Computed example of a mutant assay.
Amino acid sequence: MRCPFCGHDNSQVKDSRPTEDNAAIRRRRQCEGCAGRFTTFERIQLREIMVVKSEGKSEPFDREKLERSITLACRKRAIDAVRIDRLVSGIQRQIETSGEGDVLTRHIGELAMEGLKALDSVAYIRFASVYKDFTDARDFEEFAGSIREVSGE
């Protein structure tokens, strides 16, 4: 594993333990070059998933990219990081077990919105504002109104 501090190729595993949801192994490592310590996570990957962007370009699925966008939508909300990790793991699991080698970004966005809707309405609206490309306040107002109509508020 390459050291994030000095770029040295070798590191020693000092501690390994499963994450709380047993979906990954957390490893504490020490670089053999600079003695810096860092953490890595090992997760099961069932198959290589390619994400097809709206303009037709494909790229490998990036869990961290999905996690960053969901975390950004949840910023300054009382949402535990473990719940965000579970949501991202659930989305990744749904994608991997779908049987498809290629998945549209639109489908990933819909899965994320579905999960955020159940998690936190403000985070859901924040994510939707980027995903649906809101351009002015009226877009927010109409979207929030549609949420109220569905939930009966």
Rank of each mutant, 00 (worst) to 15 (best):
F134H: 03
E110R: 13
G99F: 07
R26Q: 06
C74M: 02
I84W: 06
A73W: 09
I70C: 08
T39L: 05
R86Y: 12
I95T: 02
S54G: 00
A23R: 14
L111K: 08
N22R: 14
E114G: 01
I84N: 03
S69W: 12
D102I: 12
Q45P: 02
E141M: 12
V122C: 05
L119Y: 01
R77A: 02
R86F: 10
I95L: 12
L116E: 07
F127E: 13
A78D: 13
D120G: 07
R27S: 02
D21F: 02
S16Y: 10
V88H: 02
G109C: 03
I25S: 12
D15P: 03
E42W: 03
T71P: 04
T105D: 02
R29F: 08
I44F: 13
S58P: 00
F140D: 12
I44H: 11
I49W: 06
C3W: 13
T97N: 12
R75C: 00
I84V: 10
Q92F: 08
R63P: 10
D136K: 11
G101A: 01
D133Y: 03
K65T: 05
A112W: 07
P60F: 09
R68W: 11
V103F: 03
D120M: 06
A23T: 14
E32H: 07
Q45N: 05
G90I: 01
G152M: 14
E149N: 11
